[in-house]
Structure formats: C-alpha cells, structure tokens
C-alpha cells in the first residue's frame, strides 16, 4: 500500500493524467447515478423530435393541421431535453448516459478478459518454455495477423451482435499485446535469483507463477490495460457505428449511426456522442501515459 501511495504521489505531478482521471471518475459517476435523474433513453415522442440542445435553434419541418402540410418552424432547445432529442424524439442526454454505461462496461469487461487471457498465455509461455512456448507464441502470431476490426466484424457477423457477445469477442481477440508483454517480462524474471530460490525450495509451478512472476509484471499490466480500454471502447463504437452493434442498447456508436443520416437536419445527434467518445478515449490515454511515467524508474531524474 505504501508503494501505491508513492506512485499516486508521482501521478499527482502529471496534470494531464489527473485531468484524465477526473473525467473518468465523472463518467463513472454519471453512468451510475445519471439514470435516476433522467427520462428513459428509449421513450419515443414524435412531437418533440429533432430538438436542438439548449442555446441553439434549428429549422425543422413539421406537419401542421392548419395548413394541411409541412411547415418550417424554428425550434429552440428546452430544459426538458438539455442536449436535444433525436429523430424519434428520444432524449439525447439520457441516451448519452446510457451510452456511457455501455462504453464503460465494454471497456472494463473486454479489457479485463483480454488481460486475464493474455497474462495466462504470456506467463505460461515464458515459464514452461520449449514446445509450449513455441505453440503459444505461434498462436499469438496468428491472432495478431488478423486485423483486429476485421476479425471482430467477421465474428459479430457470424455469431450475432448482442452486447455480451461483442464484449466477449473483443476480449477473446484483444489479448495478444498482453501475452507478448507478460511473456517478455516473465522471461527476464524467470532467471532471477528469487525465482530460482523458491524453485529450489520446492515451490509448485502455480505458486511461482502467481506469487512471484505475475505480481512483478503488474505495473506494466496496469499501464497496458489503461491504454487498451480506449481500444475496446472504440471497437464497440465502430461496430455499432457501421450498424453491427447491439440494437437493444443505446450506445454512443448506435447514436452516431443514427445521427449520420440526420447531419443536415440535426447535427447535434452526430456531434454529442462523438465528443463523449473523444473525451473518454483521450482521458484513458492521458491516464495511461501518466501511469507509465509514474511507474518508470527513470522518471526520477530532473
């Protein structure tokens, strides 16, 4: 714990990392308690469709019974829908909050799964060596050779696009970087004295792996995980954006997909989820780089 406090102290000196962390905390809180304060993200109301955000106004065509046809009216944002509504009158603020939940869920679960798989493969590959190492590493090479997004599209296309399956596929395809990192770090640890000593004392392979090898790679894993989360979030968003996302949930990618066709009439639908996505990704990148610097023993100089 003392060590954690030490790294936290070093992280505090990094302005961008702290900004990133603050935004992530804000996002998590919003995703957790936001739904209690907003209307349902799926509530359709055609009389309030394409409302602009507060402070903006926009020309919208509307059916008028008086004229018996479409008339152009100037719509203004309302406090009821502070961020506006989409083409079906659904509240965008609550959709964005729902999207935050989806993105965080995907980012954390998929990355978590990828890290666990990668760590297991990497550490076993390095620890057992020989043929096991060759087979596991060639397998990793093969996985790495498939472009990430193309493989995801193929899997989601073949097996369906529920959110659970999307998370699972991102996790099952995204572990290769972790495996290579953990393998190389473990390789350099394997010959260290403390591992040899515990081997000599008769410690089991599992014990050596879990008590000696993995904990020593933890700082690299944390950095890699933090920097992998945006990749997972973007992968889900990209899938949803091209129309392969889970249609049951309001994710940022889904909103963007809908907004693509409404650029002319309602620009905010495409702008708002993108801004959220951008801030989320850049926050994790800032935090990840900050953590890397904080863990870097060379960072002590100057």
């Amino acid at each position: 714990m003392k060590l954690a406090a030490y790294y936290l102290e070093r992280l505090k000196g990094n302005k961008t990392a702290i900004i990133g962390l603050a935004f992530i905390i804000f996002l998590v809180l919003t995703a957790l308690i936001g739904p209690f304060f907003t209307v349902s993200p799926t509530q359709v109301n055609f009389s309030e469709k394409n409302l602009p955000p507060i402070g903006f106004s926009s020309e919208q065509s509307e059916y008028s019974a008086k004229v018996g046809g479409l008339v152009m009216t100037n719509m203004h944002g309302t406090w009821k829908h502070p961020l506006g509504t989409d083409g079906m009158g659904r509240d965008l603020l609550s959709q964005l909050i729902s999207g935050a939940r989806v993105s965080l869920l995907v980012g954390l679960l998929a990355t978590g799964l990828a890290i666990v798989i990668g760590a297991i493969i990497g550490v076993s590959s390095a620890y057992f060596g020989g043929i096991a190492d060759s087979i596991l590493m060639r397998f990793t090479d093969i996985m790495i050779t498939f472009p990430f997004l193309l493989l995801l599209i193929l899997i989601v296309y073949m097996f369906g696009s529920s959110l659970a399956l999307i998370i699972l596929s991102i996790g099952l395809t995204g572990w290769t970087g972790t495996a290579r990192l953990v393998r190389s770090e473990t390789l350099s640890l394997r010959t260290r004295d403390f591992v040899i000593a515990s081997k000599a004392l008769g410690a089991s392979d599992l014990r050596i792996i879990f008590y000696h090898l993995l904990p020593n790679t933890i700082s690299s894993i944390i950095v890699l995980a933090t920097l992998s989360i945006p990749g997972a979030i973007l992968a889900e968003a990209a899938l949803s954006f091209i129309g392969l996302g889970d249609p049951q949930v309001a994710s940022w990618g889904n909103i963007l997909n809908a907004g693509q066709n409404d650029l002319q009439a309602a620009w905010w639908i495409a702008v708002e989820p993108g801004i959220m996505l951008f801030f989320t990704v850049i926050s994790f990148n800032f935090l990840g780089e900050g953590l890397r610097d904080a863990f870097d023993p060379k960072g002590d100089y100057n």
Partner: peptide
Amino acid sequence: PNFWLGMM
C-alpha cells in the same frame, strides 16, 4: 475516433 472525425 476516425469515424466521428469523418462525419464531422
């Protein structure tokens, strides 16, 4: 996200 950049 490049898809958002493209749209913007």
